[in-house]
Design a protein around this nucleic acid. Structure first.
Lengths: 263, 263
DNA sequence: CGCTATCTTGAGTAGCGTCAAGTCATGTGG
DNA sequence: CCACATGACTTGACGCTACTCAAGATAGCG
């Protein structure tokens, strides 16, 4: 069923890109047409950010397509033809890498509201992982070919794309450090502090938030199993660092948590 | 002393970029001026690869600078101002990420002959890790600003830069999978098969090669300690998969090794 | 209200890290 | 050319962290 809905989404995207009509609301997917200049995320949105007014006018030519996805639905899958990068307008996604035998899988990243998804496809022309909604989410698809045409006229846009890619490289380097060098407590602490910082960047409280993903998904990301994640949450609570009530997290001692994270 | 020689290299690079003269052979560093078209690595070299003749003529404007580094010398260090990307002409480099407290370090990648180094600096304008020669090495510095000017005229070059960055993202995703999901044997097997493939890509034997790095450096990269690396080498030898004689490796049973790697 | 997914906690174990001792290779200076 | 020092590697013993298996608690959903 996950595969089926993914197919529908891909079809929707294809239709959106070719400009063909789509039945609204089919399979719970709503597709909207918006101009960049009307996008209420344009302050956050990668390709618009940092443009001056005249550049924004040029950017109007780039028509974005919005879509909604429910928990478990795929935005794209490994091997899908790369056409767009995606700005997350609302919700949460996980990027899952599958081993060739398909037996093992690992979450290699989470993308939240205001962040960009799908850069891994630029090189090979096809996506290298599965992007799956962790909760009810809404994205804005940015056709990459159009983005490149624009970037040729707007150098700052070209720079912006490069900067996003470079940031992704640096982010992944940090995860490699986490996975290669840290124990379970340090990993979870780093994970929580990172989440906290990202919520803060979106204007939410850095000390009180929900983890939208399951213990299993967190564990997959930080290289531990779900029991270890759960135990470590409990230990942090016992030590007075957090208050954990299922998905709801309150950071009680940020400095203490940073101490555990080893900074 | 490592820090001192690094300073010298940075000074050399600065001089090279400003065009000032440099005493040849000082501190064992030799700096050479070469045009791209004369570079005998141009088939491998990232920015030249994939250009047609007329584009190559344009590319002649881009003057590269070559340098030699001895084992342990830094090509760049965390926080260094980003000016160039580097093509490895000869030798081997490791990229080392330092934790903020400077106490822990991890090798996050190795770059061999024919590969490119330094892409992590593009976004922030400064390097995010230390690039250190693992053996006597020679690199070709490609000034990034010049590369970008050229890329504006040669779209395929722009694409090429993007592709390199995207490949780096995908490579790091693979390392994350390795570090998050595999045991020591699987990690070492994956590491060796990857090395084998890269040696083959450079025209060397895929089944018989030297590991240029120490057990400690391998361990840091694959998230194990040096004893575990050594023990696993011994086990692979006992199982008839490899013949290991210190740094010299011969793969006796590639299929068996792939089996261990879990593919 | 019951079913299912998710989470928590416990007990036992295995893999890998730590500590330690010894071997081997490389390089340096007499 | 040899002696010695140093760095790199190997192997063993032991202990701890985190995984596995299992059972029960809790939340969310139809």
């Amino acid at each position: 069923m996950a595969s089926q809905s993914s197919t529908q989404i891909r079809r929707a995207l294809h239709l959106a890109q070719t400009g063909a009509a789509l039945e609204p609301g089919s399979a719970g997917i709503v597709q909207l047409r918006t101009e960049c200049s009307a996008c209420n995320l344009r302050e956050l949105c990668a390709p618009c950010c940092g443009l001056n007014q005249s550049e924004r006018n040029v950017a109007k030519r780039l028509v974005f397509k919005r879509m909604r996805l429910r928990r478990g639905e795929s935005l794209y899958r490994t091997g899908d033809h790369f056409t767009s990068i995606y700005a997350v307008r609302k919700g949460f996604f996980k990027s899952v890498l599958l081993l060739e035998n398909g037996h093992r899988a690992q979450v290699i990243g989470f993308s939240m509201q205001g962040e960009v998804l799908g850069l891994d496809g630029i090189g090979a022309g096809q996506h290298n992982c599965n992007a799956i909604a962790v909760e009810e989410s809404e994205i804005c698809a940015i056709p990459f070919a159009g983005l490149q045409l624009l970037a040729h006229e707007i150098p700052s846009l070209q720079r912006h794309v490069r900067r996003m890619m470079s940031r992704e490289i640096v982010r992944e380097q940090g995860v490699m450090l986490l996975l290669g060098n840290m124990n379970a407590e340090e990993r979870l602490a780093v994970f929580l502090l990172n989440l906290s910082r990202r919520y803060a960047a979106q204007g939410y409280s850095p000390s009180e938030f929900d983890v939208r993903m399951t213990r299993d998904e967190i564990g997959s990301y930080i290289g531990a199993n779900l029991e270890t994640v759960s135990r470590t949450f409990s230990k942090f609570q016992k030590d007075g660092l957090l208050r954990v009530r299922h998905k709801s997290i309150r950071i009680l001692d940020g400095a203490g948590l940073e101490g555990v994270a080893g900074r």
